[in-house]
Write a protein that binds this DNA or RNA. Sequence first.
DNA 1: AGCCAGGACAAGT
DNA 2: ACTTGTCATGGC
Length: 270
Amino acid sequence: MLIFKNIIPFSLEQTFDCGQCFRWDVQEDGSYIGFVGKHIAKINYINGDIVIDSNCEDELFWKSYLDIDRDYLQIINDLSADDIMKNAISYGEGIRLLKQDPWETVVSFIISQNNNIPRIKKIIGLLCENFGDKVTFNGETYYSFPTPEQIYNKDLSVIRAGFRDKYILSAASMVVEGIIDFNLVYNMDYDTALEYLKQIKGVGNKVADCVILFAFQKFESFPKDVWIKRTMSQLYNVAEEEIEIFAKQKFKGNCGFAQQYLFYSARQDI
DNA sequence: AGCCAGGACAAGT
DNA sequence: ACTTGTCATGGC
């Protein structure tokens, strides 16, 4: 059992259900169970303390994944200079940007294209059940996210991903064959990382931006999906082509955080 | 029933 | 370099 004490602001729901990840499921007691690589955990948040029951007791691993050491009060304070953003943040001030696994993030956001969040979760669940490892945790059975090797040259029709199958398989083969090495991306600047990731079939600007933000923590990324395009138009009266420049100018190094607050608040009325 | 979904790609201007 | 049709599937 790991405990991170007095982590504020923080919200399990806002962090795990804000659309950055798809493998955490809420339990009846309000805790969340999910996978990170081969590590499964049940995470609770009680009186400001994050409590982790996991098959991985590596404190640094979870601290890194949950972005524990970052000063979110400072980020929120900086972004709140803008009243519109301040209001958006009020819906999801407990969001943390998870440091996710690059491979899982690439595949997850390939699946996300032209798709809705409930079905994205369903497809990823099928992917794990059919190709991942079976893991027993607290007497229950779960399935880890498959490695590139585990889906290499496989028939993916069971996961019902439609036209995305070929993209996922292409990504797997590029990783297995060493054409793509995610470890190199950590040290790339944003532009280089963007072009590098877009070598993968099915990865365009938006998916690459999500991977750059959610796996590689390059916070100048500002993924532009249909929700962001809508809300930027409504809240800031900014046209689609101007979002990039506008965001960089207004949110500076905190673009990624700003994007998540906007995305989360925009989706609250559905 | 029909529109839409955390888009990308390729063919056509 | 920009615009448009197409791609599977199913949630709502």
